[in-house]
Design a protein around this nucleic acid. Structure first.
Ligand SMILES: [Mg+2]
Ligand SMILES: [Mg+2]
Lengths: 256, 256
DNA sequence: CCGTCATAG
DNA sequence: CCTATGACG
């Protein structure tokens, strides 16, 4: 059991006075699956408590698990939910290091699954660096590729039009295939993928691996795996990232 | 009603003494549809008689229509069938201009639809230019993309390994999407697409258009269209092609 | 939230 | 030989 994307950043050399690091975790905690939801959520709590990330992006929290995690972390983190029924995204920012100024939702109007974009306007407290945080759980399943590509384009558009003061981080469960990125014309100018900019290390590639995670069982001879969970970055000042392969264990997220 | 791909070539300038032109037609004549099969096949006959192509690639001939067309054109064309049951491909080469030396089939072993590759070893009579002609009707339907891509790769391989004396033309109903070409890594080095090398004229793009051809009716609000029919070329001497938009009318092939 | 297949529109 | 949906492995 592990979050699917865990990264750390350091500030660019133009702000050398305090090489501040930020730790980011993105994690689909499989709220669509009721099985062991209590113990799995306790496991999530344990990882967050150990890792002490500055920023957390969740997908598939449910009302119960959001209340639980907010109950645990309310003193140390701002906890923001992207919905209040079914399953939805959430974001947590560590009060000690990141100042939350505002947050809002951008709906995906043609989503059949109630998906949206959760956006937080924040600031790195120590340096004053403005940070726009975005997370989403894009339309699931291969057959919804067309809707998903539209959602991804809208998210990229949101990154591009953000105030130029912001370093923008868009991370989450994008359910996206590499071929779909090609089909929408690749990443827009100025936006980079954290897996790629950290050297495309093979051990960090798969974030959803049906051979390593039995949370969802499909009776296939050859198991499927994808890089569904990603983080895209429009950087202004924060730019050195490191991807942690141990916490990129294939959505290991879902299962305890 | 029109063939989907009609092209003419002229010899490269290195053989200037006789700027020989060749006319090629590729045409899926919709033998999977029994409706009006007789009158539609007579329509095919009429177009071939008018256009007098040097080379014809057919897909979806059936035993009856092959016998009919061979009966009509046997004196002026070599008529080769790629099968003898159900529906299959066929090729015709005009005896007056193209010499047929041999022909053979390459099976697609994992085809669920009995598809294969029909290959003719020929020679342009006037110039002696060796010409390898290949046609196929690659696996149909969107969901068979994986099988179809394998078939296409095998066909490209066949083009690449052909004796270097040959100019190779592979034309037919490839049922292929542009994205699938990208997924197999694009056209191999040395192979070019006749639509592209003739300037990618938009009026020649769609060869299967459900809005312009009611042979197959689907109750969709927005009709689909694709460039299913293509011709790929590994040229040695023949290299100047012209695509005829009037005969590229969207598989108009199928319907009279 | 996989890949494959069948069916309806 | 389209797209959308749902069942099944
Ligand atoms: Mg899930
Ligand atoms: Mg057909």
């Amino acid at each position: 059991m592990n979050p699917s994307t865990s990264t750390e950043s350091s500030a660019a050399s133009s702000v050398p006075e305090q090489p501040k690091r930020l730790k980011l975790i993105s994690w689909n905690i499989d709220g669509r699956n009721a099985e062991n939801i209590k113990s799995r959520t306790e496991g999530v709590q344990g990882v967050i408590a150990n890792e002490k990330p500055d920023i957390v992006f969740f997908q598939e929290v449910i009302p119960w698990s959001f209340a639980y995690l907010k109950g645990v972390f309310d003193e140390t983190y701002e906890c923001i939910a992207g919905g209040d029924a079914g399953y939805f995204t959430a974001a947590m920012v560590k009060k000690a290091t990141v100042k939350l100024h505002d947050f809002y939702l951008q709906p995906f109007y043609s989503s059949k699954m109630g998906r949206n974009l959760l956006i937080l306007q924040t600031e790195v407290t120590s340096s004053g660096i403005p940070l726009l945080l975005m997370t989403s759980h894009l339309e699931s399943s291969n057959v919804e590729g067309s809707e998903r590509k539209n959602q991804l384009k809208k998210a990229f558009e949101e990154m591009k039009v953000a105030d130029s003061k912001y370093t923008v981080i868009f991370g989450g469960d994008m359910n996206v295939r590499d071929s779909e990125i090609v089909q929408i014309g690749g990443l827009p100018e100025g936006i980079s993928d954290l897996y790629e900019v950290t050297g495309s290390r093979p051990e960090c590639y798969y974030t959803w691996d049906n051979a390593r995670n039995d949370n969802l069982y499909f009776p296939q001879r050859v198991k499927s795996r994808f890089r569904f969970d990603r983080a895209e970055n429009r950087y202004v000042l924060l730019c050195h990232w490191r991807l942690d392969p141990d916490t990129v264990l294939a959505h290991l997220t879902n299962h305890e």
